[in-house]
């Protein structure tokens, strides 16, 4: 049976902040929300390895840092490899008695979609295969936001980006979003989950589990980006929730091979509600929206069959 969730209500969330304000993330950047809550779960005995990206540049402009835990940035494509090195060093120094073997230090690799789906994919796969006890957190804003909204392997089909513009012939991204969490799960690591800051207790429980398993874990978090997705900054969390309410984003976890949907959606919303709020999809035609809706319907069927009951309900609005 499932263990009781650690974070059941907001009152279970620790007050201590390990992300300091004064950082330069955009107003309404949900990466701030995600990282802040991640650090509340992890606590002070934590080392963060941050791949190049929005969070990295916005939180550490010398001589200022927003991090209250030890933090390192090395490059774009190697957060998983650097974290592997830290974890191995921790093991070696414990074995040699330099560090108390009972001391627990969380090692978190934090990267965006570019640093995970694309340039960092090899290092990630290597880390997973080798089985380092590292929690890899992917904050997925579905494009290279830090360099100015270029498409990545995580960009969804049809989305406008600066390198998939809406032109006379081509309209947005042609290809599908890479199923990164499934690919990671195929490595058969102890824990993989998808999460959404709109369901913060679910997300935080996943961070907690990810840190506790004996081996690598991977948490894929959707991160609405006001600048790149083109929406009013106040709607960041609304959009995150809409992604799940429309089943475009399903919150699931796979723990030791057991697949579970952790946030069920009894009454499903039409994908148009999600698209309507975002400028990056403003060029979509009715036909295109309906085509995506059909795909989502199929995916929902597949998930419900996989789970063996209706966890994602019918389309109602």
């Amino acid at each position: 049976m499932m263990a009781k969730p650690f974070f059941r209500t907001v009152y279970d969330v620790p007050r201590e902040e390990y992300l300091a304000p004064g950082h330069g993330l955009c107003a309404g950047c949900t990466a701030g929300t995600i990282v802040k809550l991640l650090l509340k779960v992890a606590g002070p005995n934590t080392i963060v390895v941050n791949a190049t990206g929005c969070v990295e540049v916005s939180t550490t402009p010398f001589p200022y840092t927003s991090w209250k835990v030890p933090w390192i940035h090395v490059a774009f494509e190697n957060a998983a490899a650097v974290a592997s090195g830290i974890e191995s060093a921790l093991k070696a120094l414990k074995a040699k008695g330099v560090i108390d073997p009972s001391k627990r230090i969380n090692i978190i690799a934090l990267a965006g979609d570019g640093g995970t789906y694309d340039i960092g994919f090899q290092a990630l796969s290597g880390m997973l295969e080798r089985g380092h006890k590292v929690m890899y957190v992917l904050y997925d804003n579905e494009a290279y936001m830090n360099t100015g909204i270029q498409r990545s392997g995580g960009t969804p089909v049809y989305a406008w980006t600066t390198t998939t513009p809406v032109g006379k012939i081509l309209k947005g991204k042609i290809q599908q979003k890479k199923p990164i969490a499934e690919i990671v799960a195929a490595h058969k690591i102890p824990y993989v989950a998808t999460a959404n800051p709109g369901y913060f207790t679910d997300m935080m429980n996943k961070f907690k589990k990810g840190l506790e398993v004996n081996g690598p874990s991977f948490i894929h978090v959707i991160q609405p980006c006001t600048t790149g997705w083109k929406f009013d900054p106040r709607y960041g969390i609304v959009l995150a929730r809409l992604a799940t309410e429309t089943a475009l984003w399903i919150n699931w976890e796979e723990e030791e091979g057991q697949f579970r949907v952790t946030v069920s959606v009894p009454r499903r919303k039409h994908v148009r509600h999600y698209f309507e709020l975002q400028g990056r999809f403003s060029h979509l035609t009715e036909e295109e929206i309906e085509a995506i809706q059909k795909e989502v319907d199929l995916e929902v069927d597949k998930i419900n069959k996989l789970v063996g009951r209706t966890v994602i309900g019918p389309l109602v609005e």
Binding site: V82, S84, I86, A89, R130
Partner: peptide, 27 residues
């Protein structure tokens, strides 16, 4: 007595050495 990391590329070899050294290990 050492940890051997069988990395998947030299890029990761140096990255892991950086991580290990940044943690205070002799890499």
């Amino acid at each position: 007595k050492a940890e051997m990391i069988h990395v998947e590329s030299e890029h990761s070899a140096m990255s892991a050495a950086i991580g290990a050294s940044a943690f205070g290990a002799r890499a």
